[in-house]
Write a protein that binds this DNA or RNA. Structure first.
Length: 455
RNA sequence: GUGGUUGUAGUUCAGCUGGUUAGAACGCCUGAUUGUGGUUCAGGAGGUCGUGGGUUCAAAUCCCAUCUUCCACCCCA
């Protein structure tokens, strides 16, 4: 026990059973992505730190896994940095690569770098691991998979609508009941402007984002502590506590923003998307939530977040529109919108709700028992013929006791066992045992093949 | 990053305020069944008590450090 090898904190191994389930999620998601015209790309696990740093706020930088430079990385280091305990400063000197923190920033880098080869609007999906040096807990890992889908080079709100359709179809296929929460960064900006505190936008959004977690009174307290005066807070009250139907909320916001250009634009955008959605057959709950902020400082328009209705695991999908992400890398004027599906949280959700398909995908349908050297030669030929017919089959590799071989088949849940022993070889009729019912009969190989194919 | 929590056989856990050979269930292996699994019966193997240090005549048990687990905060998929 003590000297057992282990893996780093917050990382996981995946067994064959878990992989079958994970692939079920990935396959479902990818299939829907492709159906809507998105194509896959991949980017390296490592990016230059200059690409990653400063894109996720101050908090994000400290959550980046940094990769130590090769060779004599100490050369560039300044001893005084160590003495003053400047961890951050030292880090930039001994490390210039980092593991990707999400898929959006590497994608922005990709778009800028390959701008001449890309036909806009560019619709891509990307399913890869990301790493965060976060402290792990339920539904939070240090290595986890994101399934991203983005459109860049198009301002149309049809893209927002399409993403919501993609979300709806994926979770419907997975049988997860969800609520899609929508907001617009312009509404948040409008609120800040309305109360004459545009520079407090981040503080305001961070505070009201916690609304359903800490309650409205605590939100006021936090706003106050951030230096927002009582007058402004009292103006905020009717906005934050807004309830009712989506269209009702929008009406109230619209009148509120009669003198705030930015806010009006946000209302308009949400209205357009909601109108488009109304024409379509969307199963998920769509909920306007003016407290939804999602902290990411690069969102400029729509903000989207998905929560599972029946499991408390945080958001399982989120995203939004970012007008100027590629601008950071020197290509301004390209707008993008995208969402990210959290495969690991979707896994935990399906697990908790017992929604994984029962069949053990990929396992053999038939196992041939091994009766010894001469018999196994004959069995090898039988195996080949069955596999050529597309049947998932395996031959037990050792001539162990039949009892042991049967137990192996039983535990791997292989539904059929085929005995190719001395008697069978002589007669040409092989014994096929149904492991579920326990019955067995003798058939010619061609009959067995068509029987297994049918069942 | 801050505060708390967990770690004993392959697995889930028991082990009272430190006391002598550390237990159970399930699983595993062997046999009853040398060509038949899932049930039953009989027997068996398996633990430097996360790791390192300390206190003590004596530590799984107390103390410190470290790693790990889970939880809250921060933040997020």
């Amino acid at each position: 026990m003590a000297q057992k090898p282990s893996i780093p904190k917050g990382t996981r191994d995946f067994s064959p059973t878990e992989m079958a389930r994970r692939n079920y999620i990935f396959d479902t998601i990818k299939k829907v992505f492709r159906k809507y015209g998105y194509l896959p790309i991949e980017t390296p696990a490592m990016e230059n730190l200059s690409t990653l740093m400063g894109k996720y706020g101050e908090e994000g930088d400290s959550l980046l896994f940094k990769v130590l430079n090769s060779g004599d990385f100490l050369k560039k280091m300044d001893v005084s940095d160590l003495e003053e305990n400047k961890a951050a400063k030292t880090a930039t000197k001994i490390s210039d690569k980092g593991l990707r923190y999400d898929l959006t920033v590497p994608f922005a880098r990709y778009v800028v770098q390959h701008r001449n080869d890309i036909r806009f609007p560019f619709k891509r999906y990307q399913v890869q691991a990301v790493w965060r040096a976060d402290r792990p807990q339920k539904g939070r890992y240090r290595e986890f998979y994101q399934c991203d889908i983005d459109v860049v080079g198009s301002d149309s709100l049809l893209n927002e609508t399409e993403l919501i359709r993609v979300i709806d179809e994926i979770f419907q296929t997975l049988s997860i009941n969800i609520t899609i929460k929508l907001n617009n960064r312009k509404i948040l900006s409008g609120i800040a402007e309305k109360i004459n505190a545009p520079e407090k936008l981040t503080d305001i959004t961070v505070a009201i984002d916690k609304l359903d977690k800490i309650g409205i009174e605590k939100v006021y307290e936090e706003l106050k502590s951030k230096g927002i005066d009582d007058d402004a807070i009292s103006q905020l009250k009717p906005i934050i506590g807004l309830s009712g139907t989506n269209s009702g909320k929008l009406k109230i916001l619209a009148t509120l923003f009669n003198d705030v250009e930015e806010g009006r634009k946000g209302v308009e955008e949400l209205n357009t998307v909601l109108n488009q959605l109304e024409m379509l057959d969307i199963k998920a709950n769509i909920q306007l939530d003016q407290s939804l902020a999602r902290g990411l400082n690069y969102y400029t328009g729509a903000i989207i977040e998905v929560k599972a209705d029946d499991v408390n695991i945080g958001s399982i999908c989120g995203g939004g529109r970012y007008d100027n992400l590629t601008g950071i890398f020197g290509l301004p004027g390209i707008s993008g919108v995208g969402v990210s599906f959290g495969a690991d949280r979707i896994y935990d959700t399906l697990q908790e709700l017992d929604l994984f398909p029962k069949q053990t995908a990929g396992s053999s349908r038939v196992m041939i028992t091994n009766f010894g050297e001469t018999e196994s030669l004959h069995a090898l030929k039988v195996l080949e013929e069955m596999q050529n017919e597309g049947i998932y089959a395996e031959l037990y590799p050792d001539s162990a006791k039949i009892q042991k071989q049967m137990k192996y088949a039983d535990q791997k849940a292989i539904p059929f066992v085929l005995h190719v022993g001395e008697q069978e070889i002589k007669s040409g009729d092989y014994t096929l045992k149904n492991m579920l019912t326990g019955t067995q009969h003798n058939f010619k190989l061609s009959q067995i093949i068509s029987f297994i194919k049918e069942n």
